[in-house]
Design a protein around this nucleic acid. Structure first.
Lengths: 194, 194
DNA sequence: AGCATAAGTCATCACTTGTTGACATAAGCG
DNA sequence: CGCTTATGTCAACAAGTGATGACTTATGCT
């Protein structure tokens, strides 16, 4: 079989493989250019398949986005025993410093932030952040305004992600991870004392 | 003149007025739906003028966005004498707690965040945040990693804006502004000691 | 009043978008 | 093999996009 034969040879038909190729390509494209900046034809081209398969396998571009931006939620990150400092540290490692090759190197939350112009995306963002992360954080604070203090910790973490992925500030990627964690711990600890 | 006459009467032609009507409508639309979610026809309809005037007065939709999201930079906010805590407090009041009727109630930075899918927008975001706010903050920190600590303060502030405008968390708007400022001050102060 | 120019209007283009349905072909089983 | 079904291909549509250029009409000056 010549090289030309190899190139022109029809690809093997494999539902699962094409589906996940599509999903991977979508994650990368959506993460980099956002929902509106990404066309179905581009996603399909990246995946090396026909654009119409998106609709066969996912229903619509929106449904594809929904599945691509679904977080495989770690569920119960940071031991329940630890205080807010411990949880914040775990989240820093996961959301901010963590690198995830699947989604083009970004956490699903950050992926959604690039498409925050769309109401449905903001709705999902609200749900995951408020009902998930913030509620978990608030539980570790004691006293009057636990919710407010949890909000500030959440803001700090989210803001770090925004700095890295949207503002593209070189500081965080260039910093010593342990130093970053230590400083964040100090800030959260200050909140615990307040 | 009857009511019908009044309604059908041609509007007065006033370049400055239509231009600023267009600009206001654009700010509101862009702030709420982002760049891609907003059409020139919608902006024009809100302003009550013809869509093509956008191109006559601004050149293109992008140029309109650029002008609509331009921050009337306060330049030298927070006395140069004050430390990071003072500057952070001033920024909290301006960016996070401040309400600006012109842009649909949001700071230009937040307006840009809803269009963060677009590279040019991220470029402007990068410029304004890094060269403006972060540089200013870093100057008030002493010691080794002033840039990193400035980054964390910036992240906290930006994150608060994201929480309010993108995640739509009810906590910050519902909280006592003075309490919020006090907690933020504590967090920044912790950074100063570190 | 009459005229020059600025301001606003209209029809329309060129293009992209998500999406659909009819068609072709490979895979797998009897 | 021969048939069925799952998988992939193709052409095209309907709607919406930003943008342009020719046209009309109000405005303000002389």
């Amino acid at each position: 079989m010549t090289y030309a034969d190899f190139m022109n040879a029809p690809k093997r038909r494999d539902r699962a493989a094409t589906r996940s190729a599509l999903l991977d390509a979508a994650r990368r494209r959506f993460a980099e250019h956002g929902f509106d900046g990404t066309g179905v034809r581009e996603i399909a081209a990246d995946a090396g398949v026909d654009p119409t398969l998106i609709f066969r396998y996912f229903g619509s571009k929106q449904d594809l986005f929904a599945e691509a931006s679904k977080a495989e939620v770690p569920e119960g990150i940071g031991e329940p025993g630890t205080g807010p400092v411990g949880l914040a540290d775990a989240l820093v490692r996961e959301v901010v410093l963590g690198t995830r090759p699947a989604s083009g190197g970004e956490h699903p939350l950050m992926l959604m932030l690039r498409s925050a112009g769309r109401p449905e995306v903001r709705a999902r963002l609200h749900e995951e952040v408020c009902d998930g992360y913030l509620a978990d954080l608030a539980r570790r604070f004691e006293g009057e305004d636990a919710a407010l203090r949890a909000e500030l910790v959440g803001a700090l973490l989210l803001g770090m992600g925004v700095m890295r992925d949207l503002v593209d500030s070189p500081v965080l990627p260039g910093a010593d991870p342990d130093r970053v964690r230590a400083l964040v711990a100090d800030m959260v600890a200050a909140l615990e004392r307040a």
